[in-house]
Design a binder for these strands. Structure first.
Lengths: 190, 190, 190, 190
DNA sequence: GATGAATGAGCTTTCATTCAT
DNA sequence: AATGAATGAAAGCTCATTCAT
């Protein structure tokens, strides 16, 4: 896996500038000229690292997804119990999104746009699906197609994050635990 | 509420053409010039009915939301039991989205774009939220902030639809009922 | 054949502006922004009639070639003798080029550029080649591949025009007749 | 005259890369960035040897013209008769161009572009014009302005080469001799 | 109501050139 | 001498919008 340290200063400045702008103005509203001002690089530099605006957006999606994946992974270290991991995965992602709302907004825009050529239904089709499938295979979760759990688990974490980020209401620690509990209660093979 | 019959042929042609294009090319890729070709109307006609592209997109969102709301409402007629409505609302929306994937794609793009100025976290903040709040108030659902249920209910129906539309897997009738059952099991005050 | 009257005012303004600029600054130096100023039309108008700069240049080549062809044709009316036509064709083209040096310069640049995708070696591969082939077939010219005559005839008319246009010397009426005489003397089957 | 041995490896690589690209893509299409890839040198290296793209093109024209001039000269050694030289000059240039079509294409593009600031009508205004003038002065050719002969001689050799290079037809040894014969017949003071 | 040619600001991208290494 | 990342002016082109018909 590509190490984050491999990115040059300029590349990171571009990614960070673009994140700011896409969250604020959307893909359409993020013009190259705005980006060069925000990231404080020249047009030529953007095109030195990326072959087109599309290419930038696709690589940017990979960049932030790697970051979030690394973040979630590092928060799961040492947890062995499935139920504990079920809580942690949900909560870590939720907290990341609510603390980094621009990443969430970027992901949501990307996933629902024509940039998403693999047509993934959400941001973490890999690791999270595997985790839920493991739950079914090892009988922590009641027998069912893992996609059913994927819809419930990913749907709720993303929607809860969006309610927090977009809306006015804030779910406190207790609310969040309640939600995961209900999910677990509905899904687990007690 | 504006009756669907009030729309002129041209207006509908514009909405339908735009739906096609937004699903295929996104907001960015849906230019007015492409739209006039797709809808077989002149530029002038579009600007006769809509004051700008923004105006078109916002009215188009209302148009399709009204259609879906009317569709859902008509499927709930005569159902009195909360649990029955809990099933029907979820299922009807799911079936509508999987049968009209372009509407889903349009809604998702709209909600996550800067066009969504009210910053709604999903497509049916009104009726569906009210329905879930009613469940809490009337104690059909365990006591909790209705937003918790909103995240679980709306998150799962949208995510399940997207898994069907974007992905390769198809949830059959049994799968769908299983999913709603798990939701109900997690949320209901049995 | 497309009648010149079918071209709109704007199209002609574009062709005339482009001719001016290509003659002065070459293809590379003829930017769209210069062209819109010269032709007094907007960028959009250029792209309304032509799909790209390449497309404009190709259509422009056809436009001026048609004009020159029509000019030459109209000067040959009523001439029956091959030798007389041999003189007239050469002279009419020479006079046209020296009186419209920008057309000559445009043609020469076009023919030698990658725009010339049919890889014609000169501007009038059709009518002039046919005329020389007729000369061989009907034995007005000594038996030989018509391409030999094409090289001599077209080469000399274009080079003579260029010597006049680019250089400082002017060939007078007598000089021109001398040249055609020598050509005829070399080529004709006396 | 600058000896070819004085050019460094890099300079030659640049000239050869540029020849390839100009023949393929024209002046416009030959960007410095393409050139550095083709010639396998860095941008800095190009700007070490040439002060600008214009400078490169002008020096490149001199470079290849020197090569062709040297080639033609070496083929004329020992020939004393005017008629023999008349044949050899034409034939040698023709053979060089048909064997090095990219040089011909480069010359033609250069001559007809704004790079040609001296506005030479063809590639060898020096030596070839002098040779034809000598023919008139020494009465090998009929009395006439040497420009008349220049148009016929240079026009035919360049056009014949272009017919071969661009077109499908190949003139064989006999055809070529026929052509020069006709030229000579038209021009010479028998 | 309906048309589509015309507009021009602003878009994405290119490219000759510089300069620190 | 040689490199190539960085620059930014300017290129080709798009596109929301206007308006005379």
């Amino acid at each position: 896996m590509k190490n984050i340290k491999e990115f040059s200063e300029k590349e990171i400045a571009i990614y960070e500038g673009a994140l700011e702008l896409v969250a604020k103005y959307g893909f359409h509203g993020t013009s190259m000229s705005l980006l060069t001002k925000e990231a404080k690089v020249s047009t030529g530099t953007v095109y030195h690292y990326f072959s087109s605006k599309d290419d930038l957006m696709k690589k940017m999606y990979c960049y932030y997804r790697s970051k979030v994946e690394a973040h979630v992974s590092s928060h799961l270290q040492g947890e062995k119990e499935y139920k504990q991991r079920f809580y942690s995965r949900w909560m870590t992602l939720y907290l990341y999104y609510t603390q980094h709302p621009k990443v969430l907004q970027f992901f949501e825009q990307f996933i629902n746009s024509p940039y998403n050529q693999e047509r993934s239904p959400h941001h973490f089709t890999g690791a999270y699906f595997t985790f839920l499938k493991e739950g079914v295979d090892k009988k922590y979760l009641k027998p069912a197609k893992p996609e059913i759990y994927e819809a419930m688990y990913m749907g709720s974490v993303i929607m809860a994050s969006k309610i927090n980020v977009f809306g006015s209401i804030l779910l406190d620690e207790g609310d969040r635990e309640l939600l995961i509990n209900k999910l677990w209660y509905g899904m687990a093979d007690v």
